[in-house]
Design a binder for these strands. Sequence first.
RNA 1: GCGCUCGUAGCUCAGUGGAUAGAGCAACUGACUACGAAUCAGUAGGUCGCAGGUUCAAAUCCUGCCGAGCGCGCCA
Length: 599
Amino acid sequence: MTQAIDLQLDQHEKDVSTMIQASLAQHVIKALQAAQNAQELTLDSLPSEIKIETPRDPSHGDYASNIAMSLAKSAKLPPRKLAEILLPHLQGPLFQEVSIAGPGFINFRLSQAWLLQQLQGLIQANQGFGQQTNGDPETYLIEYVSANPTGPLHFGHGRWAVLGDCLARLMRLAGYSVKTEFYINDTGAQVNNLGASVQACYFQAAQAAGQTLDAEALTLIETYLAEKNAETKGQVQFYHGQYIQTLGLSLFEHQGPAQLAADLGYFSDYAKSAILAEQQAQLKQFGVVFDEWFPESRLHHEQAVAEALKHLKESGKTYEQDGALWFRSSDYGDDQDRVLVKQTGSNTYFANDIAYHWDKLRRGHTRLINLWGADHHGYIARMSAAIQALGYPKEALQVLLGQMVNLFRNGEKVRMSKRTGDMISFGEVLEEVGTDATRFLLMQRSADVTLDFDLELAKSQNSENPVFYVQYAHARICSIFRNAANLQAYDATAWPQASLEALVAPEERILLLKLLSYPDELKFAASQREPHRLATYAQDLAALFHSFYKQCRVLFEKEDVTSEEIALSLARLNLVKATQVVLRNVLVDVFGISAPEVM
RNA sequence: GCGCUCGUAGCUCAGUGGAUAGAGCAACUGACUACGAAUCAGUAGGUCGCAGGUUCAAAUCCUGCCGAGCGCGCCA
């Protein structure tokens, strides 16, 4: 076991040097081993994971380990005694001081020389700073958005889009092998309903233009309008959004009466490809790109559903009852068994989805991550059951649920009606608010909480809007470097050759520690699949920079500048540069938004 | 009724079983005749929904209850 840990750490030594927590964890493990070898300590086994944390109170140290407390019981030693045993074995150039405090914390204070060396490494790594290898052999496929091509993207889709995109970026930076995919439900009853709805509007347009319609067409218009204008709410068959009218009208404008005799499939194909194109354009504008757009129709074309059903049948995971084919999902933890083939002989959506997930796995993706709206949570158990019944481990499927978004305008909730199609679409919000602010506001909160999104706040270009706070820090830094290039008093552009020893102010140290923790933050957020953690990090980093900037003068524009001031200035420019690098990396590479040079 | 998620400052929310629970906004007090005030420094604001339990240690884990949202189809 100890060997396994060592191997894993050695394998990624390159990363470890820039990852403080992993580096400290390695020191702790080695101290435990050394103490065991010196027979100062007996443990049945070494812990599989060493947790390194940052103390809330900086006076305790830069980092801390609770190892002495967590191992006290198995080592049969009081925590402080155990810590005292480990202390002599915790040595290295990165430590300025290792101390024992409180109930048995081991507190680490990192040496200034080592930190400054890491600072130079950070600047050298530049856009690569934070990027890691992690040795995870799995290949991940993140499937998200997957909106039906029956209407415009709604605002909830926007949230999944950002979360999925940022998660993919985050995991790639952390060393995971990741592909992304959008699943297009381009077949089935809903697509037919879509086609019929557009057909009805096309007929209306034709009628308005003086065309004579046959009885069937008139009936369709009548049925469509009756549902649209119905007083009572209930199940709806057709789609009634404004976009349906637009599609029908547009078709008549381009084709005239040529399609009056066309079949339903023609209208379905026309509508779904137009809507899909719109979705794709919006997502692209939003900075969300998919490696693959996978249409459900491909499954049917390849007989994949039939094959999946056959596979489940032959392995005894199904049975027939009441004229339907059932899947024994309750054997794998679902509440009840689920129908695959209905009495009518047609497949359920679930059957198609099993085939789709099987296809994803057979394409070589060993880990499937799905982002679903929370309203689909009841679906997880059966999908997980299907994955297992197909012979894959439970871990092959991870479903991340995202809660919904409530839209507000000036504190008033914006009402949405699905029935009448009366909704603010994602495209409208994007147009009104802009990509950067929308992305940031949608990804800064945990997917687990229902999000309140205020349109006016999102548009506001002031301190209420956190995205500008972070971007402003970057723009400010760019401004410093513009000024540095024009400085008369001394050559500020010589900062890359400067000695860094002048960086001794507390504001400088705390900023530097935050910068160097970026790879750890990235790694942890990726492992938790929680991109919002980086939003918190970015805001904290920006705050530390602004504070530093106020307290620590970077450029001295006066005639009588001293050599000490010049040395300090050049050293500080390195810290400013490092901040610029990390802000850019997190804004551009993780959030997918701009790192502006001016605002 | 059952299941999932959430409940932390006035509001919106962070918070990896650790030390005195944090940030932004709102409120109040200060700071621009040198690098961007879209900024900074400070004050005030808390029964971490409630009650038990586990633990050296609980906002965090477990159980029950209360409240909010979302699900519970041979729909997709």
